[in-house]
Amino acid sequence: MRERPSTGKSPKQPSLKEHDGDVSPFSISKLMNPDADWDREQLGDVLHWIRQALGLLLGIIWGAIPVTGAFWLILFFALTSGVIYGYYHVILKVDEEELGGHGGLLQEGLFASFTLFLLAWILVYSLLHF
């Protein structure tokens, strides 16, 4: 995904918060760039897919070790919420109020990732250890 030069059509001096709304949200340069300009849909999609990947990963790891017990469910919620919060607050430094507040951002893809996590954990646990 070549980063389109922002000076493109409009000759205006590219401001610090260069508006790159049309750059796909999954280009690495945007994912790691605290100055990138996010809108709610794009940030929501990115957080959703990060959460799904985390859910699947933790499910497979928990199942492979294996670990059992409800404690690991709670750890899953804590870990994924911590990573999501760390990402949008520390790395992206977005203004949460504008983008749906902490509640909105932390709930992005939460239920889907929880079911995906459970499914991965149960399947890997059942298939590897029985």
């Binding site: 928990w62 199942g63 670990v67 059992t68 017990g69 409800a70 954990w121 646990y125 059942s126 029985f130």
Partner: peptide, 9 residues
């Protein structure tokens, strides 16, 4: 039939 084993109660 039980189709899987739950790693938690």
């Amino acid at each position: 039939k039980a189709v899987a084993k739950l790693p938690f109660v």
